[in-house]
Design a binder for these strands. Structure first.
Lengths: 331, 331
DNA sequence: GGCTATCCTTAAAGCGCTTTAAGGCAGTCT
DNA sequence: AGACTGCCTTAAAGCGCTTTAAGGATAGCC
């Protein structure tokens, strides 16, 4: 049996399609009696509105496009949080992932073609100009980096996050603290600069060492190998990684090389992902408060959609979660 | 500036909207001269079709809905492979994830409401009846488990996969081989039964031990703790886990407990995820050949969409990838 | 009773695209 | 010439829904 249409419900309830449409979307107008008749008819027919038709008829859809990298644990966490944050707003999430063959631009295009009301970018590597170009096509909110001229940004304060980490490590007695860098991208840059600034403030600028890594375990392995090769006397006693996955790569290669964590080397991650919380991992990490980020993102987006002017970037304070991968340096 | 519509392109090219529609979708009819005129006009205006309108106008959309769990690495791998497999078919993927608040049913509903041409379920935990209910709403292909009456299945041969693993381990000399179970769900059941059958065939039925775990690292930790608690004399010398994440949980807790992998304990995963391939992990694992699964899924789906009858389940042969987490038992 | 005010309800006009049957226009064939 | 034949092109009718202006009841008031 083909799906019931609005007209079917209308016929069964003995009213017009206009009335049914009004009732089902809870618009003022129809009387109580009509409302219940319509609801009953719709229920009996198992009616569900056709989104394409709705989207076409109103100018704006209630779809919120989210561009993410499905292979990224933090993105998964954010999607979960976003799902909670849109509940009750009337907005619906639609996901579009980047893959090895699809870049962010392509992912956004897909969403824009389905006439999403707005687009949310998670962990973008795009620059300001590219963002502005995209923002021309749809209201745009970027998570994890500052907004651009046309795009609003929602992010955790990375500089503050790295300060928390460096504070924690120096308090433990570390001075040779290295940073495993995440590569290109605004997020990576912000963290790297935060690290540098924090080291400088502690008078440790000369000891600051940025090691190339990346945003995955594989990148951590590279950085870890480089560090493990250094002689014990000059080797850093602590390493801060761009994110948890990277930190785990570093940790793994260190353990393999016979160095104990945290005794010989303290390791700190970023994101406080489920991985970091595992009983056997217990990685010290910076939590970006995904719930707060999600709430702020949705708030910015609805403001943008409502045409509220002067929407500003939101910065959420991160929090250091100390676990077992950091300790005072040996000796 | 508002987006260009079909009519804008038509006006600029000096033809009718019908012609533009025909040209842009590469339908026969328009002459070469007309085609290039239309293409130029469309290009100049940056025209992109409105999916909602297209979907509405044709009866069937070209959207293929994929239900996945965004926190699952194997699903990420599959999405990537699917993305490759739909290239050139004219189909477009749209993702819907399950979250802590959205179950599979809700995810499917979202997709069906957007009038997807068909729905693909990754790693479902639904039963036959539930699948048939869903299949009534849209052509349905399930990945990882057998199909139901109305749904087509595409999966790796789990029984064979576990046989490969047990063969490998017995060849190394193991007899006490435990299995860390993935819990409810058809996939989990198939693997558990495959393990039991393989053990039986090797005359090791009495040594078969299914330990409760789960499909994440956390589950592996539980299973690992249970195993580590056993006295060395009766403790299994090898453990096969439901998937890689679970295997890593087991491995971590073992290493923590002072047992070396693979010397004291061999560990085998399933999925051959990026995690398993990491230099420091090098987990022996069963590869489900995601590319083949993806190709088969898309093939089944297009067959379903074309109304081809007698579409059958596809079973892909898995492959054992031996790495460094398995070795002969000590002594 | 006639008139206005108040509610409900609906006809009808799209939203932007696809599709189909019909029309136009060269050329071809008798 | 007239009748065909193909080949292009297009007018027009939707797809299923939302929206708005207008219509019909009903009730209240003088």
């Amino acid at each position: 049996m083909p799906r019931a249409r609005l007209a079917d419900v209308a016929r069964r309830a003995g009213v017009s399609t206009a009335t049914v449409s009004l009732v089902l979307r809870d618009r003022p107008g129809p009387s109580q009696a009509t409302r219940s008749a319509v609801h009953e008819a719709a229920g009996a027919l198992g009616y569900r509105a056709d989104r394409s038709a709705s989207a076409l008829a109103r100018k704006r859809s209630h779809l919120l496009g989210v561009v993410l990298d499905v292979s990224h644990p933090f993105h998964a966490t954010m999607v979960d949080a976003l799902d909670g944050a849109v509940a009750g707003t009337g907005l619906d999430l639609v996901l579009s992932t980047t893959t090895s063959r699809r870049d962010e631009r392509a992912a956004v295009d897909t969403l824009v073609d389905s006439r999403c009301a707005g687009v949310l970018l998670l962990g973008t590597t795009l620059g300001d100009d590219a963002l502005d170009t995209l923002a021309a096509d749809a209201p745009l909110v970027v998570v994890g980096r500052p907004g651009a001229r046309l795009a609003r940004g929602v992010r955790a304060d990375d500089a503050h996050g790295l300060r928390l980490v460096v504070d924690h490590l120096t308090r433990l007695g570390h001075t040779r603290i290295a940073y495993a860098d995440g590569g290109r991208g605004a997020i990576s840059t912000a963290r790297r600069q935060g690290y540098r600034a924090a080291m400088r403030d502690h008078g440790l600028a000369p000891a600051a060492a940025v090691v190339r890594a990346g945003d995955t375990e594989a990148g951590g392995l590279v950085a870890g190998a480089a560090l493990a090769a250094e002689p014990p006397g000059t080797r850093p006693t602590a390493v801060v990684a761009f994110n948890d996955r990277c930190a785990l790569g570093v940790r793994d290669v260190m353990v393999r090389a016979g160095l104990a964590v945290p005794t010989d080397l303290s390791v700190v991650g970023y994101d406080d992902s489920p991985l970091a919380r595992l009983e056997t991992v217990r990685l010290t990490s910076v939590s970006q408060d995904p719930e707060a980020l999600a709430r702020a993102s949705i708030a910015s987006m609805t403001a943008l959609l409502d045409g509220t002017t002067g929407v500003e970037d939101v910065v959420v304070e991160p929090r250091l979660v100390v676990r077992d991968s950091t300790a005072a340096p040996r000796g």
